[in-house]
Design a binder for these strands. Structure first.
Lengths: 112, 112
DNA sequence: TGCTATTATAAGCATATGCGAATATTAGCA
DNA sequence: TGCTAATATTCGCATATGCTTATAATAGCA
């Protein structure tokens, strides 16, 4: 299956012809929610347990857990039990880069 | 409003404390659809009109147009009329980088 | 074991999203 | 102007998503 030249800044090539799109789409859908991005931003500060994540996000505990479940399912974060708590972190540190790149491209003002 | 150190690979900082998440989320939701990613992948090959985009994506013309409308609305692509046709391209070439980075991070096999 | 703290899951409902079908708009040309 | 090609928009419906409430599961400790 032939590789396809992309219109990017020209460093890597990760795309080919068809499909694999639904898998990618599932990842992006996981990122496409205000609360989940809020969770990720908290986690980007460092490993954090659920109740810590919840602080500052105006959401119920079950809601946070549901969103964490989605992020875990998509491989965006990982959770590790530590006693009664569960500590979450980015599954890959480059997830932070991904979010920062998106913010740059779309000129999203961090102060808003 | 204090900047927050992220857990990324440590190059830029684009994130702050609160909000701006919904705006980001809207972008990611635009990317979170199989057909729209298929459209982007086609456009990454170079500027392309609607009927060309449609070729190879098993979707109706109205459907492609609807998805293009969403991508335009979110600033992911831009369209320029050329006679009866409308040529679409990435609004920013770094959009390709964003998709490629995501594919790398989540180890999405382009041949699937 | 009984109690509390922490986290996860399930059920129900409201809204958002995605698609097909029909129709409208825009441009070129006879 | 009338006709055709290319693209966009609207409507209606089915499914997905997100939230709240209630409840369950897990761990530490008296």
């Amino acid at each position: 299956m032939p590789k396809v030249e992309s219109a990017g800044t020209g460093h890597g090539e990760e795309f080919d012809d068809l499909s694999c799109c639904e898998e990618m789409a599932r990842i992006f859908r996981a990122l496409g929610n205000e609360t989940r991005l809020g969770i990720l931003r908290r986690i980007m500060e460092g490993e954090m347990c659920v109740s810590e994540i919840q602080d500052g996000l105006d959401r119920s505990q079950p809601n946070i857990s549901q969103h964490l479940s989605i992020l875990r399912d998509r491989g965006v974060v990982t959770g590790e039990r530590d006693g009664a708590r569960v500590c979450y972190r980015l599954a890959d540190p480059r997830v932070a880069d991904l979010l920062e790149l998106a913010a740059k491209i779309f000129e999203i003002d961090p102060t808003r």
